[in-house]
Nucleic acid binder design. Structure first.
Lengths: 233, 233
DNA sequence: GCCGCGCATCAAGAAGACGTCAAGATGTGC
DNA sequence: GCACATCTTGACGTCTTCTTGATGCGCGGC
């Protein structure tokens, strides 16, 4: 129909539901990859990068929201959450975690297909080839899939916020990110006016990844604006 | 950039519902424009292009779906449909007509806000590749995405005001900008009567980007009027 | 020639942004 | 409940940037 052959990753632990979705999608020309757990989902994301993800929230080995967050660390693939939970808080949490849409079970197949078409439209418009799964700057190496940072071969331990910060800068390597943008991405859309958070955690991050933290060469300050990760060029 | 709140066009004929939405959005920093009919909505789209549209389907002078279709003929502004109709066919029709999301009344404010944030994310992602603008004047290069200025390959560090100045002139390359215009754009409408600001900072800017600052070839003075950025011609 | 005007330049101080440290709060796993 | 890691919050010193005033130059009118 709209995008013949688009590859869809279906993350769903219930076999019955998986079968239902598989039947509905394949009959409309989609190709399917299936995952029954969070770990399997992340693994398949790297080995068979899909064009779209259908994500169930109730997984045996973790929350689906965490899966969405992890995917968003390096990928912009459209994510549609399918969940039995209809509470507003669940929807807000999922959408703010990076999901593009949220359908409450039970849902109609036609609505699902329509919302998938919307997601495909968006992906087309964005045309983001930013699917880099690793990055290297000097002796610093970032592995987004394993969520690991090494410096000169040594693993650098980062706290959750530090990793989020660094991943954010890596995704926008070379570009200046304003305080507002950083706060919005790392701390959530709500707390946009605490620039001090950024300063403190940037200092911590620099201590760990810069050779001379007091004279940063990777994470440089743009006074009055924000920060920038300086890439090779 | 959302320094001032995003502008939202609310298309809704029921005054009570309008009031509810207005209160919810303004308290979260959004600015809003209201339309009570399809005709008014289309008119406002052109006179005050919004960053997002909230569209009710039941309008006195026509279907909301037609409004969505008409907007999509020339605009990619995110459209979120708010409707009392919960039938699947309605949803599919609206989404396929170009709507980006569909909420069935009654809905929670927090879900609406979350879905609006999703729409804003999409708009941002779609806009950034398009705005990959750069400008070249002699050996001077301006990269607005990276917020970086280079001269002969070397990065030139600019303070926020200097960058704002240069970006302003670049946007109006070749045209003369008066002191008033410059002050209004860079310092804000309040301090329109301090021409000295401009002189001092123009001098600083010239020191950094001109080969011979005392004899400027890029940022030239138009005595008695203002300044002008001389482009290639 | 002298004066007034607009512009360029310089420098000092004020204002604000940033980096750093450390203590208290919070949360998490055992 | 305790120990540990992490995050928040406040205080303070340092550095960048902006403002502001003083001064000099060039030009045109008188």
């Amino acid at each position: 129909m709209s995008a013949p052959g688009a590859l869809v990753l279906v993350v769903e632990d219930e076999p019955q539901m998986r079968r239902f979705i598989r039947a509905s999608l394949t009959s409309h020309g989609y190709r399917i990859v299936e995952a029954a757990s969070a770990a399997e989902a992340v693994a398949l994301m790297t080995t068979q990068p899909p064009d779209l993800v259908l994500l169930d929230l109730g997984l045996p080995d973790g929350d689906g929201i965490d899966v969405a967050k992890r995917l968003r660390e390096w990928s912009r693939v459209p994510i549609i959450v399918l969940s039995a939970r209809g509470r507003e808080d669940d929807k807000v949490a999922a959408l703010d975690a990076g999901a593009d849409d949220y359908l409450t079970k039970p849902f109609g197949v036609n609505e699902l297909l329509a919302r998938m078409r919307v997601a495909e439209r968006h992906a087309e418009a964005a045309a983001s080839p930013t699917a880099a799964q690793a990055l290297k700057i000097g002796d610093l190496e970032l592995d987004f899939v394993r969520r690991e940072v090494t410096r000169g071969g040594e693993v650098v331990h980062l706290t959750p916020i530090e990793y989020k910060l660094l991943a954010l800068f890596a995704r926008h390597a070379g570009r200046v990110l304003t305080h507002r943008q950083i706060l919005k991405e790392v701390w959530g859309p709500m707390c946009a006016s605490h620039p001090h958070y950024v300063r403190v955690h940037m200092a911590e991050l620099r201590k760990k990844i810069e050779a001379t933290p007091s004279r940063p060469r990777i994470l440089v300050t743009e006074p009055g604006v924000g920060y920038r990760l300086r890439d090779g060029s």
